[in-house]
């Protein structure tokens, strides 16, 4: 039995070695916020944080997660209080159907940390890593949105990221 912590809560996941982290999460009441769009690591809908890094939960087997800490979309806010990224997504209409949204937000959360840590991307130039629309676009390209909310997603992440950089 794999024991792991999801949003600070100890849970026992399926011991079926074929079962992905995604499929087990989605079977747990209260954890259906993580979505399955492709089951192949191609859409990002299932993005969660595994020990602080973003991963596609459909590409991780549950048994690999023994002792790990997982944060899902349900774990980002504080109680009823939405996380600033979640608020920014609402304000900027960074979604329409909302199905890709939990993955987008988890991905954005980890991505902002990657930028803060100075981890470079394909668009980073010699001046180093800076929060910019181009960086966000590139780094969020693993999260598909068929509703086409991309421009609003960039607006939302930029606003939340800038707020984090210079908390007023």
């Amino acid at each position: 039995m794999a024991e792991l912590s999801v949003n600070g809560q100890q849970v026992t996941l399926s011991d079926d070695p074929r079962t992905t982290l995604l499929d087990t999460l989605r079977e747990l009441p209260g954890f259906t916020g993580t979505k399955k769009g492709c089951d192949h690591g191609q859409c990002g809908a299932c993005t969660v944080l595994l020990d602080g890094r973003r991963v596609n939960a459909c590409l991780i087997l549950a048994v690999q997660c023994e002792g790990c800490e997982v944060t899902t979309i349900e774990g980002l806010g504080e109680g009823d209080q939405l996380h600033p990224l979640q608020q920014a997504f609402v304000r900027h209409d960074g979604f329409q159907c909302g199905y890709c949204t939990p993955g987008q937000i988890c991905s954005a959360y980890a991505m902002l940390e990657e930028i803060a840590n100075g981890e470079p991307s394909d668009v980073t130039d010699e001046d180093g890593v800076r929060l910019s629309r181009d960086e966000i676009r590139e780094r969020m390209s693993g999260n598909l949105c068929r509703c086409g909310a991309y421009a609003n997603i960039v607006d939302a992440i930029l606003e939340a990221g800038q707020r984090e950089e210079s908390p007023s």
Binding site: L82, G98, P102
Partner: peptide, 15 residues
Amino acid sequence: DRVDGPLKVSGAATY
């Protein structure tokens, strides 16, 4: 803002 926005961004909207 979308009235169902908070549900959708928090994973609480049930598809």
